[in-house]
């Protein structure tokens, strides 16, 4: 299989000046006439005629300009034939690759992307993903699009970040407030060549709508209300209460629900909400009684129809709004209460027999009315008459048989109580039950009359009937009816029937039996122990079991062991323990910002500070640059976050892999770490020098080692060191490890060799193996402490195969660089390119790639890490002023 193209031509150019691009030759030409022929796409297949061959010399020429986007490569099938047209050789394939030029700009799939995000969303929440394509060669810088937010409207403060590569637009912080800005508009630029200055760019617009959440608490327009309402009246619009809520109008977050907290125990009031206006109308749905309650205090609360957002849930406190209600008195006059009254009439009752009275009640006083006069309204058969002032009802005459028949045993008439002053009339109903036995016929009438007058039991029956009628007329009627019955029966002797006497005897018997029953009661005693009360022992414990019976008594020590987990006093630190698995930068309005990702909430201020205050790496104390949060975490956990390491290195490598535009050498990661059993916690420091206007005054505060490395990264001249060893460069990695004058950081296992001069060695130790953490990096150098220093640059590109060394210079700095577990599929091409350390000292860079699992440049041979514990990939010594000598050496 051909693994690379034999020849190449550049698209969009006249390549004919490079003709012949290839030539074929057969040894058969030595002794016979050979004719060379070619075929394939671009020759005898469309597009025709791109390649032609000189049949005699075998020279292949390209004739036209080619377009990689049309035909990315050609396969020219080459033949050598004799004069008879017979093949003299097996067919050869000449693969011609069309080199890509950046002739296609990025194209966004939409001119305007629409997105929406809830306000108060956490920082780093994904809002939308933009999409752009570039027709240039895939996996090439010409098609590598870098996205960048150019502008934001409103431009008050940047609220969004975009991932340079994935085009994911995320929230920068959790301060999105719909009530402040309900819509954001971003202008995003996508530039190929990874955003390089020579790239082609396209722009698109992002319209981001901020969705409302219920993060505003509603309140009533006024702090209190005062109203008055007439008694005995309903009111459908007693009070209008306007609710103020800043959330989105007409949404459930805005619509209010007013509820009674107290004061409406009688259910007199109701509140109806108008969802269009958010105004609540207080209604009276049950009449109030001035005589019962002259004032009352309503206490109202308000909430939203929707639940409150979790961000303000804790802030919501039920706040009562007072509504003072004054009940106005209304002259009500008199009414019959109850509205009807029942009497019983027998044939014994004669003329002017007084049945009772029916008196109206004055509602304004609650007493019998004194201002009314009574007149009969409906009075069937003219049976009764009422006293005009007294309200006493009398039989006008003895009821005759005819009247009884006309009335069919029942009389129902009305009484009017007329208040002349108020010009009001109220009506009461009189019901009279005519005792039927009295008027059956003339003969029986006499007999019944006799029996009625003599039989006490009959009177008792009358009482019962009356009582039943009263009950049917209502509760109050029952009372009245009972009174009436009592009046009637009071004329007779009260005595009990046999059943009543029997009940009384039974009652006494039961009372007498109670003490006897109690004596035999078990009262929870143990079954079978006899049915009697147990005496309570004299000791206080009584029947309580001792500890030894129920189990061991908990000792004091045990109790003290049961305690809640201790919470560190500073909870903020816990919050800051976030996983910095994703690191990406975003150039925003001229400022570089770096988001650590991982869902943490980072304010814009912190981001700015993170960039501007990158400085002294103090162990666990100082915020050092963009890795501030990470440092805290690392310190807390006592070890390096290998996920972060992996992410950082890989993303850096990837980001700088294909860049070739001029860029200052300005990125430096300094990490020192001492780990292992018994060692103190390590630390991570980072200096990320980005931008042209670099304020490097803080470098003065760095320690010696870090300042040295920072200077190297910045391309500054560093102090020369005496030449440590004439055998430089080292033939093996052992030569660069233990150096005299080394200042190992921490108390790791450093082995210092005396034969080296002052050379800066930054060291690290192995990492303890933990689940989910990268395996320890085998350290082929053999010494205990190593510091990782990573430096990438695109200034002064050196080919990966170049090995530069000049041992004439004495100053040497060992820089060890590691790439840990690159992301699968990441193209590491170019990541091993070294910076041009202008006029600098000699620098040895040791780079190692552990378990790559991805495509690597073919020039790099990576031993299988499973077969050897240590893998050293490249080691280069760079001396800018000397010639380029040496080559890539790989140490298994």
């Amino acid at each position: 299989e051909w693994i690379k193209f034999a020849a190449a031509c550049r698209e969009g150019e006249d390549n004919s000046k490079r003709n012949p691009i290839a030539k074929i030759h057969s040894d058969c030409a030595a002794n016979q006439q050979v004719t060379y022929r070619i075929s394939g796409v671009g020759i005898d297949q469309p597009p025709y005629g791109i390649f032609v061959i000189n049949q005699k010399t075998g020279e292949i020429n390209i004739t036209t300009i080619v377009d990689r986007e049309v035909t990315p490569f050609f396969i020219i099938y080459c033949r050598a034939v004799n004069s008879l047209g017979q093949d003299l050789e097996r067919i050869l394939e000449l693969r011609v690759r069309v080199l890509d030029i950046n002739d296609n700009p990025p194209v966004f799939s939409m001119s305007t992307f629409l997105g929406q995000i809830e306000e108060n969303s956490n920082a780093n929440t994904l809002v939308m993903i933009l999409n752009a394509t570039d027709a240039d060669e895939p996996n090439n810088l010409n098609s590598k699009i870098a996205f960048k937010i150019l502008r934001q409207e409103p431009s008050a403060s940047p609220m969004f970040i975009i991932n340079r590569y994935t085009a994911e637009v995320r929230t920068m912080n959790n301060f999105l407030d719909r009530e402040q800005y309900g819509q954001y508009s971003l202008v995003v630029r996508g530039s190929d060549r990874d955003g390089g200055a020579d790239g082609m760019a396209a722009e698109c617009e992002c319209s981001i709508k901020i969705l409302d959440v219920n993060d505003n608490i509603p309140y009533m327009e006024q702090p209190s209300y005062s109203i008055s309402v007439e008694e005995n009246a309903l009111n459908s619009n007693l009070l209008q209460i306007r609710i103020i809520d800043l959330d989105e109008e007409f949404s459930a977050n805005w619509m209010a629900v007013i509820f009674f907290i107290s004061g409406n125990e009688g259910n007199w009031f109701d509140i109806e909400m108008n969802e269009r206006t958010n105004v609540g109308t207080l209604k009276v749905i049950k009449p109030l009684d001035y005589e019962a309650m002259k004032n009352l205090q309503l206490s109202l609360g308000v909430r939203n129809k929707a639940e409150f957002h979790q961000s303000i849930m804790s802030q919501y406190k039920l706040r009562a709004t007072a509504v003072s209600v004054t009940v106005l008195n209304v002259v009500e006059g008199s009414v019959f209460r109850p509205g009807s009254k029942t009497f019983v009439v027998t044939s014994e009752m004669g003329q002017n027999y007084q049945l009772g009275d029916f008196i109206a009640t004055d509602l304004d006083t609650g007493l019998p009315s004194t201002t009314v006069r009574y007149v009969m309204g409906s009075n069937p058969a003219g049976l009764i008459a009422i006293g005009s002032k007294t309200g006493i009802i009398n039989l006008r005459n003895k009821v005759t048989v005819q009247q009884y028949k006309i009335l069919r045993g029942k009389y129902q008439g009305t009484i009017l109580a007329i208040d002349d002053a108020l010009q009001r009339t109220c009506t009461g109903t009189i019901i009279i039950k005519l005792e039927s036995s009295s008027w059956k016929d003339d003969d029986s009438s006499n007999k019944n009359n006799t029996s009625t007058s003599t039989n006490g039991l009959t009177s008792s029956d009358v009482t019962t009937d009356t009582y039943k009628n009263s009950v049917s007329a209502g509760t109050n009627n029952a009372h009245v009816g009972h009174t009436t019955a009592f009046q009637i029966t009071s004329k007779n002797n009260v005595h009990f029937g046999p059943a009543g006497i029997g009940l009384l005897i039974m009652g006494f018997l039961v009372l007498g039996l109670v003490p006897f029953l109690l004596m035999f009661c078990d009262c929870g005693g143990v079954p079978g122990c006899g049915a009697r009360f147990k005496p309570v022992p004299e000791c206080l414990d009584g029947a309580i079991h001792s500890w030894t019976v129920e189990g061991a008594q908990p000792k004091l020590a045990d109790l003290t062991n049961i305690c809640a987990p201790q919470i560190p006093p500073n909870n903020a630190d816990i919050i800051e323990c976030i996983d910095n698995s994703g690191v990406y930068t975003n150039e925003y309005r001229g400022r570089k910002m770096q988001d650590l990702g991982g869902g943490e909430r980072t304010t814009a201020l912190e981001l700015v500070d993170a960039v501007k205050t990158s400085g002294t790496p103090k162990i666990c104390q100082e915020n050092s640059g963009t890795l501030r949060r990470s440092s805290i975490r690392e310190c807390r956990e006592g070890g390096l976050n290998m996920n972060f390491m992996e992410s950082y290195f890989c993303q850096k490598a990837y980001a700088y892999a294909d860049e070739d535009e001029a860029r200052p050498s300005n990125d430096c990661l300094l990490i020192y770490d001492i780990e292992g059993v018994g060692s103190p916690a390590g630390s991570v420091g980072c200096c990320s020098f980005i931008g042209e206007d670099l304020d490097d005054s803080y470098l003065d505060t760095l320690g010696t080692k870090f300042k040295k490395l920072a200077d190297i990264s910045l391309g500054k001249e560093v102090e020369p060191y005496p030449d440590p060893d004439p055998s430089w460069p080292p033939d093996s990695t052992e030569l660069i490890c233990p150096l005299q004058g080394t200042e190992p950081i921490g108390s790791g296992h450093s082995h210092i060799s005396p034969h080296f001069g002052t050379t800066t060695i930054i060291s690290e130790s192995n990492y303890p193996s933990e689940p989910g953490v990268q395996h320890p990096i085998p350290d082929p150098l053999g010494y205990g402490n190593v510091t990782l220093t990573e430096s990438y640059t695109t200034l002064g590109t050196l080919k990966p195969s170049v090995h530069v060394h000049d041992n004439r210079h004495a100053s040497n700095v060992v820089v060890t660089e590691r790439v840990v577990g690159p992301i699968s599929g990441a193209n590491l091409h170019g990541m091993l390119e070294m910076p041009d350390l202008r006029d600098g000292s000699n620098v040895i860079v040791t780079e190692r790639v552990i378990t790559p699992g991805s495509s690597l440049p073919s020039t790099l041979t990576i031993p299988d890490p499973r077969e050897s514990s240590n893998v050293v990939v490249t080691e280069r010594v760079i001396q800018p002023t000397s010639g380029l000598v040496g080559n890539l050496s790989v140490h298994p």
Binding site: E1, I3, A6, A7, R18, I21, K23, I24, H25, S26
Partner: peptide, 26 residues
């Protein structure tokens, strides 16, 4: 032997340099 030679464009002094292309195993 039937061989293909391709031009090396990277020569700095403008001289034409030819490389024989050989089949390789991946």
């Amino acid at each position: 032997e039937f061989q293909i030679q391709v031009r090396d464009y990277n020569t700095k002094n403008g001289t034409i340099k030819w490389h024989s292309v050989r089949r390789q195993k991946r």
